[in-house]
Design a protein around this nucleic acid. Structure first.
Lengths: 196, 196
DNA sequence: TAATTCACTTACTAAACGGTAAGTAAGGAG
DNA sequence: CTCCTTACTTACCGTTTAGTAAGTGAATTA
């Protein structure tokens, strides 16, 4: 593996753990066994490194989500939810980075990434509208559906440490697989929004 | 208002916006129009200030959640969800702080706060178990139910800025009231987990 | 009136931060 | 052999960070 790819890999892990602002380039440099200035040889600045970490994953998520073109909203919704699960399983750090950015108001995301993420949300809205038009779904608040799906999946990936700490006091399932969570969520969401 | 209360109020706003690590005491001091050392007169360190910001809200949430003691799991679940909504409406910054801590693995939370938060999660688990025992609920994965409820409510409060940025590209409802979201969520959750 | 406490301020420290200027060893091209 | 590029390193800069030591004026207590 070349150094640039190694930096990206280490940076991805760090951004997932500490968020954009919490990551220090000194620490990344130390882990990659290079000097900090070497990072600046490969990337213009911290922000560019962050975008280069995120962009391919965002694009892969979009491709996955748009890969099915069924006329069945139920199928489409299931595919949508499992697309997230698939990408998050492939890149567990990606979900954590998104979670950090969500709570930070996307402060450190470039407009290009925001634009691409919008495509993801757009797809869900169109699925819900289609289902509503076909009399399959009954949705009073599409936004709350979106919240339930996306935040549940993202939070699942990012609260592993917290669950560990909480498990000292209560009995919870510690490490459910995201695919199982995706199944549980899509089953419940479908039941919740289905007419009759 | 005395200075200590003013510091807590400003700190609460800052912690909500930037998370524990992102907040600087210099900035809080400037806003409160005192010196940074004055903060250290009132609080032992940054961490103690953080706990003093959080603790009363956590306790109020616990009291609200445990204030109803019905034998009807449906009623109890509705009360649970609306308890969150009530506290988050009263302290919008509290939800944002929790969100930051969730994605940071509760890194900056004291054991006491973790213990108290566990009580909150415990209550939901007991409601779900009770509903299951009475044949009202059908739950394969209690953890995913918890995720859907808590993360949806918290994320709703914390993604206002992000929604604003996304709204340039897609048409979403910008500022739904948390009470409406709570109603939508509890309605969907009940439908999703009800038997039949 | 003298001593003490309260609620701070000023001035500082050591460490960490993102970022940069200048230099360098290795290798390929002409 | 010389020039140039690649992929870095060393050493630094200015700023910001949490935290501290010492001092101060006003109010309270003995």
């Amino acid at each position: 593996m070349n150094k640039k790819a190694e930096i990206i890999k280490i940076a991805c892990k760090e951004f997932a753990k500490y968020g954009y602002k919490g990551v220090s380039l000194d620490k990344i440099a130390k882990q990659a066994e290079i000097s900090k200035a070497a990072i600046y040889y490969h990337f213009e600045n911290k922000s560019e490194l962050f975008q280069e970490v995120l962009m391919p994953k965002v694009n892969e998520l979009i491709n996955e989500i748009y890969s099915l073109n069924s006329s069945n909203p139920v199928e489409e919704l299931e595919h949508y939810i499992h697309s997230y699960a698939k990408i998050f399983k492939k890149y567990p750090n990606f979900a954590a980075i998104l979670a950090h950015e969500f709570v930070d108001g996307g402060r450190d995301l470039s407009d290009e990434i925001i634009k691409n993420l919008s495509k993801v949300f757009k797809k869900l809205l169109s699925i819900l509208r289609e289902g509503q038009k076909k009399g399959l779904f009954e949705i009073d608040n599409p936004f709350s559906v979106q919240l339930m799906i996306v935040s549940s999946l993202i939070m699942h990936q990012t609260t592993k440490e917290l669950r560990q700490r909480v498990s000292k006091y209560i009995d919870i399932e510690l490490n459910p697989d995201i695919k199982d969570i995706a199944f549980a969520i899509s089953k419940k969401i479908l039941k919740a929004i289905s007419k009759e």
